Amino acid sequence: MDIEPDNSGFSLDLTSPNEAGDGIKNQTTNATKWINFTSAVDLNTSRKISAQLSGATLSGLDLKLGISHYSGSGAGTLGSSISSIILGDTPQTIINGIGGAYTGDGIYNGYNLIYSLEVADFSMLRNASKSFSIVFTMTDN
């Protein structure tokens, strides 16, 4: 399993309002990352991919991860994705039912990852940058 086009970081920014009484503007998304995998398993065996935050406490914010349906040049039992989750510090399944399969390599192959940052609790927001990792794990069901 890998992340395409690379596993480099990216930024999601929230912009302060220009006018008193307005909400936060420009809640951005990032949809540049793709999960590719190859899975060789025995018949009647399946795998899943989970995601979780590592090294982060996002005070007042939720990091939402949307996962597309499979697209690309692969073949086999590619599993099915959930539509979206709010990432936390415990693993959550994002793709399930993977059998013997491969997604194809590179962007536009596999499952597109769509990240967005949302305000969960305005009273907890602080003006600070947060840096953290997202850990993806493929395991047998």
Score class of each variant (00 low, 15 high):
G104W: 03
L61N: 02
D62P: 08
L113K: 14
N44K: 04
S73F: 05
L43P: 07
T77R: 07
S81P: 13
I67W: 02
Y108C: 00
I107V: 15
S39P: 05
I67E: 02
I114C: 04
N36E: 09
I107S: 14
A101W: 03
T90G: 09
A101S: 12
Y111P: 13
R47V: 02
N36R: 10
I98S: 05
V41G: 00
I35E: 04
H69D: 08
G55A: 11
N44P: 00
T57A: 15
S80Q: 12
L58M: 03
L113G: 11
G66R: 01
G74P: 10
Y111C: 05
A56N: 08
A120G: 06
E118F: 00
A101P: 04
S50A: 11
E118M: 10
I86A: 07
K33Y: 10
N96G: 07
A31M: 03
D42H: 10
A56D: 04
G60N: 09
R47A: 11
L43G: 01
Y102E: 11
I49Q: 13
G79P: 14
N44D: 12
Y108A: 08
H69V: 07
L87Q: 10
A120F: 03
I98R: 14
I107H: 07
I114L: 08
K48E: 15
S39Q: 10
D89M: 15
K64I: 04
A56V: 14
I94D: 10
I85Q: 07
I82Y: 00
G100V: 06
L117I: 11
N112G: 03
S50K: 10
L53A: 15
T38W: 02
L78P: 01
